[in-house]
Simulated assay, not measured.
Amino acid sequence: MENPLVLGVDIGGSHITAGLINLGERKIISTSIKYKEINPHEKAEVIINAWCQVIEEAYAGWNVREKRIGLALPGPFDYENGICLIKEQNKFQSLYLMNIRDEFVRRLNVKLYNIKFVNDAEAFLRGELFAHPPGEQSVLGITLGTGLGSALCLKGEVSDADLWNTPFLDGIAEEYLGGGWLITRYHQLTGVRLPGVKELSARVNSDQKAKQVFGEFGHNLARFIDSQINMHRLDQVVIGGKISHAFDHFSKELTANLLHREEMVLIRVSELKENAALLGAATEEFDRKLNRQEL
């Protein structure tokens, strides 16, 4: 049987990445990967058109018998029916209550049942653990970007942990562990508002205030992880998302604030990076069909 291709798509708060997955070999076809930055405050038509453009570019040049697409998106989202429920998270407000699956069916010439949605953090952890099987370990996966994503692997089962709105410090976890906190905190200390975390990261070696902000972020992240270790008896924590690229800037504070623990808990950065979500989104549902030879 010919190895089927499934398109894995990772939609974040400010970007979309798409790439074809060879399910038989469970490998990402690197030459098919396409990326585009997205303004999450645009009108619905602009956002959907940009998503469809990247998906079509990823398929370009590949002769597939039938398009199959697995998409990883942030919540809240009705993953079974494909309806966006994001309303008050400073992104995708224009997509609220829109049926994204129907839009893709109409615009991309793909069958309804060949479009699957999964939580982005869950897809990230599924993809990462495929590359590094955890055995019997309990694993927390967190994605740090414009918001906070989270997933748990307990007794071999991966599920969305939905920790973004967990009570934390003087608010909820996402308010302290997303990119917005880093930018706002730097502005509080300096009066300068940077466009993003990438620009803040570039200042660390020459700007003491930038270094301080990442240190405080690492301290906050340690407190959050510590609470989850206590709750789930974790063996491992895997960190992904755009902010993980700046891990060296906050890892010292993170690890220092976890040294009090008697048990050893592995804290590591994703090796697959953004590709983990592509792999997890494409394989979660369609791989089950492959095993039943339904593709």
Rank of each mutant, 00 (worst) to 15 (best):
P4S: 07
V6Q: 05
G8V: 07
V9R: 04
D10K: 04
I16M: 06
I16P: 04
T17A: 12
A18V: 07
A18F: 09
G19R: 03
S30F: 13
S30Q: 15
Y35A: 01
E45G: 00
E45N: 04
Q53H: 11
V54M: 01
E56K: 13
Y59R: 00
E66D: 15
E66V: 11
R68V: 08
R68Y: 15
L73C: 14
P74T: 00
E80H: 12
N81T: 00
G82A: 08
I83T: 07
Q93P: 01
E103K: 13
L112C: 12
Y113P: 07
I115V: 10
V118Q: 09
V118K: 14
N119P: 07
A123V: 00
A123L: 01
L129E: 05
F130R: 14
H132G: 08
L140N: 09
S150Y: 08
L154N: 00
V158I: 14
A161G: 09
D162G: 14
L169E: 08
E175R: 11
I183M: 12
Y186H: 01
H187P: 02
Q188M: 11
G191H: 07
L194D: 05
G196A: 09
A202D: 11
R203G: 03
V204W: 01
Q208M: 12
K209D: 11
A210V: 05
E216I: 10
F217R: 03
F224Y: 09
D226E: 13
D226P: 06
N230H: 15
D235A: 02
I239M: 03
G240E: 03
S244E: 09
F247H: 13
L258H: 02
E262R: 09
M264K: 14
V269F: 06
L272T: 02
K273W: 07
E274C: 04
A276P: 05
L278N: 08
T283E: 10
N291D: 12
N291G: 09
R292K: 13
R292Y: 14
